[in-house]
């Protein structure tokens, strides 16, 4: 019985691998195989793989290697993200904990959060010009918004009975917050860190497409201009992998930090 189940799971993994192989084969067939698509419309998988290897040491056509672009992007994204989290988490907690502040700030915040991060690019570029600072500011805003929303709802979801336990023991307001509300909101805060990371990374790509001289977004935009779609696809793959790796790190950190088997 157990063996049969194991076999079943293996069967589906096998189908998944087969499905991927088939997909890549079709991709190869319509490009290199039968030549239906030319490389400036859809490059073959072989070509994309070659470019992926080459781009690590070649600066052509956009003036920097893949690693340099990646580091440039990471610097901006993580810089804005960390500051966004450092300000956003306490702000969200504070808003949720203080009723009057909550009622005042909520409407303004609800309005600001509907503005996609990218839209701030124009404002920042006009204010401080194209460069590290304008992008970092845009990412800061979009990361902060996600952080505030999640830590806010984390604190709001604290069970009343948990607060009551603290109150009947005579805990002060500060103790209720730090010993009960924040630990109980921790899973949501980590969700926020993950969501904010996703939105920071997306916003970064957008900002780099729009206004930049380096970074992965810049690289794919430049490559598009000269119809080097192989490099565009390489860029997209690196963007996706980097985003996934960063998110995995946050989730791993969350599992380490969140006690008591809550996810």
């Amino acid at each position: 019985m157990k063996d049969k189940k194991k076999f079943q799971i293996n069967k589906y993994i096998f189908i998944s691998i087969l499905s991927i192989c088939f997909g890549i084969f079709v991709w190869w067939l319509v490009t290199d195989g039968l030549g239906i698509f030319r490389s400036n419309a859809l490059p073959s998988p072989v070509k994309v793989f070659e470019s992926f290897i080459k781009k690590w040491y070649e600066t052509k056509p956009d003036g920097a290697t893949l690693l340099e672009h990646l580091i440039a992007s990471l610097q901006v994204a993580l810089g804005g993200y960390v500051i966004g989290a450092v300000i956003g988490i306490p702000l969200g907690i504070f808003m949720a904990w203080n009723d009057k502040i909550d009622m005042c700030v909520r409407p303004v915040f609800d309005l600001v959060r509907t503005i996609p991060g990218v839209a701030w690019t124009s404002v920042m570029v006009t204010l401080v010009g194209i460069g590290f600072l304008s992008k970092a500011l845009v990412i800061f805003i979009s990361a902060m918004v996600a952080m505030v929303i999640n830590s806010y709802s984390g604190i709001k979801q604290t069970k009343t009975v948990h607060l009551w336990v603290g109150q009947t023991f005579g805990a002060s307001n500060w103790e209720l917050l730090t010993k009960i509300a924040i630990p109980s909101a921790l899973p949501m805060i980590f969700t926020g860190l993950d969501v904010a990371l996703g939105s920071a990374w997306t916003t970064l790509v957008a900002a780099e497409l729009l206004a930049s001289t380096k970074g992965l977004g810049f690289m794919i935009q430049q490559a598009r201009g000269i119809f080097r779609l192989d490099i565009v696809i390489v860029g997209m793959i690196v963007i996706a992998i980097t985003g996934a790796v960063l998110s995995t790190i946050i989730q791993w950190l969350g599992r380490k930090m969140i006690k008591g088997g809550r996810t």
């Binding site: 497409l209 977004g217 490559a223 598009r224 565009v232 997209m236 963007i239």
Partner: peptide, 10 residues
Amino acid sequence: PIPPIAWIPL
């Protein structure tokens, strides 16, 4: 994992 925005050039 590819942000929709990264599809813009393609």
